[in-house]
């Protein structure tokens, strides 16, 4: 008997918790509102199923609990009922899957006007690289990573000379412009994760992975690592600042290019 009551309480409590919980996702700061909407649809459908199944169970336990002289029905199966339930379930599943796949299709297709930004993960810090004036990132090679060349850029690649290198500091992005994040790691797996952007992707040493998004509001966001990367995993933090166009240009002007970083003597002579 108590169990029937508890089952009802489980359903009621779960729904109330969901509605009044102060623990909810961070305010979104990217174009991936569709992801949130798919998630909400999934919450509604699954919540309804959960409530229906558990409440039905509670009713059965209450109504058909053992009493003296009671005997259960003998009903091996009911094809019609089972078929209906299967069909309804299939429709419910499709209602979650189809929108999800549409959004995923957007997720994997990077718009042509997206600017490339490279993120490099290493134990346990983040570095960034922006294509310089030529709009192209130079090639890189993990073998070339050293104290002088922390991101392992190939020195004689002309595309890389004007690349802006931001080592172990915050990344700035202009608001409203799509960016393609190219993700690279020089040691173990990492995952570039900004909760407010919703999108995330692992970074794998030896290859370059990507995802894209458009920042939709200015602000400072914390970068977390979302793939276990050793004992410093929890301390691997970074920052992304989404700026207005003017602020972004100002910030960009203060940054050093790869050429400036590798030839500090020459630049000081030129000054």
């Amino acid at each position: 008997m108590a169990i029937a009551l508890v089952l009802v309480l489980v359903v009621a409590g779960s729904i109330l918790f969901h509605l009044y919980s102060p623990w909810w996702w961070t305010p979104i700061a990217s174009n991936w509102g569709y992801i949130d909407q798919t998630l909400i649809v999934t919450f509604w459908i699954t919540g309804a199923v959960f409530a229906a199944v558990v409440l039905f169970m509670a009713y059965c336990v209450f109504r058909f609990r053992h009493k003296d002289g009671q005997r259960a029905d003998y009903e091996p199966e009911n094809r019609k009922l089972e078929t209906w339930l299967t069909v309804i379930t299939a429709i419910g599943v499709a209602a979650m899957l189809v929108p999800g796949l549409f959004v995923w299709n957007q997720f994997v297709q990077v718009p042509d006007d997206a600017t490339e930004v490279e993120v490099v993960g290493q134990q346990w810090q983040w570095s960034f690289r922006l294509p310089g004036a030529d709009g192209k990132l130079g090639k890189s090679e993990t073998r070339l990573v050293s104290a002088d060349n922390p991101l392992g850029l190939i020195p004689d690649d002309p595309n890389g000379q004007d690349d802006v290198v931001v080592e172990a500091a915050d990344l700035h992005l202009p608001v409203g412009k799509p960016v393609k994040m190219l993700l690279r790691s020089i040691d173990v797996l990492h995952d570039f994760y900004v909760p407010e952007f919703r999108a995330k992707m692992d970074m794998i040493p030896g290859s370059v992975t990507y995802f894209w998004f458009t920042p939709t509001r200015t602000g400072t966001f914390q970068v977390l690592c979302a793939e276990l990367c050793g004992q410093g995993h929890a301390y691997m933090r970074g920052g992304v600042m989404v700026d207005t166009e003017e602020d972004y240009v100002a910030w960009l002007g203060e940054q050093q290019t790869f050429a400036q970083l590798t030839a500090p003597e020459q630049t000081s002579l030129a000054d």
């Binding site: 169970m57 058909f64 009671q70 259960a72 029905d73």
Partner: peptide, 8 residues
């Protein structure tokens, strides 16, 4: 459970 004789 439906129309069973549920021993808890």
């Amino acid at each position: 459970l439906w129309r069973g004789d549920i021993h808890l």
